[in-house]
Computed example of a mutant assay.
Amino acid sequence: MTDTFHEFVVQRSPALSRTAYLLTGDHQLAEDLLQTALASSYRHWRRIHDGDPEAYVRRVMYHQQVSWWRRRRPSERLESQPPEVAKDDHSEATALRLSVVAALRQLTPRQRAVVVLRFYEDLTEAQVAAALGCSVGTVKRHSHDAVRRLRAIAPELVEATVERSPR
């Protein structure tokens, strides 16, 4: 049992860590979130390892993040400009990344989870619904609302998407 869990952690931690970061918007909180989810998953490993353990861990991360969010409402201050400019000119990519993170922070936790799982993790609506324990219709509604809100609060992301798409 321990060997299969260790193998799972080694193989899937990078992807799960990125998902945790997108859910929290903070590297340290993402590490804590992933560690908490993996600890919980380890306790249930015998039951989940034959199914889809990655979906289980993502679901645990989502529920844990919502729980943390409900307990404490962080006072975040969003900056309009990055605090420093890198020597190499990665400013456009950095600005875009900061815009994405800032925009995601303005979504509700459920909308953020749907956007991350649906568009970043590239899960189907049915897989997102299973991961979040809701219906496909709920996923569609949250996805629609989140995309509409993102377009309103961060129009520069729409422009960046259009500029980067192949023609």
Rank of each mutant, 00 (worst) to 15 (best):
E54K: 15
R164S: 08
D89A: 02
R59T: 13
E54N: 10
T24P: 00
R58D: 02
T108Y: 09
S40W: 14
E84I: 05
R59D: 11
M1C: 04
E84C: 04
L157H: 04
R58L: 15
K87G: 01
S67K: 12
D26N: 11
A15M: 14
T4W: 09
A55Q: 15
A103C: 12
S99G: 15
R151Q: 13
H90E: 04
W68N: 11
Y42W: 15
F119C: 05
T138R: 11
V114Q: 00
K140M: 08
T36K: 14
S165A: 13
A39E: 15
V114H: 00
G133M: 07
W69S: 11
A39C: 13
V100M: 03
L157R: 02
D122M: 08
W69H: 13
V9C: 09
A160G: 09
L33W: 08
D89Y: 05
R47S: 08
D3M: 01
E156N: 10
H49K: 07
E121A: 14
V116F: 05
D32K: 15
V85C: 00
D26G: 06
D26L: 09
S143E: 13
A37V: 07
R110G: 01
C134L: 05
G51C: 02
R167S: 10
T19D: 07
R97D: 03
I48G: 00
T4V: 06
V85Y: 04
A30R: 01
E125S: 04
D122H: 12
L117T: 01
L107T: 07
R46C: 05
C134D: 01
S13F: 08
T124K: 06
H27G: 02
R72E: 09
R118M: 03
H6E: 15
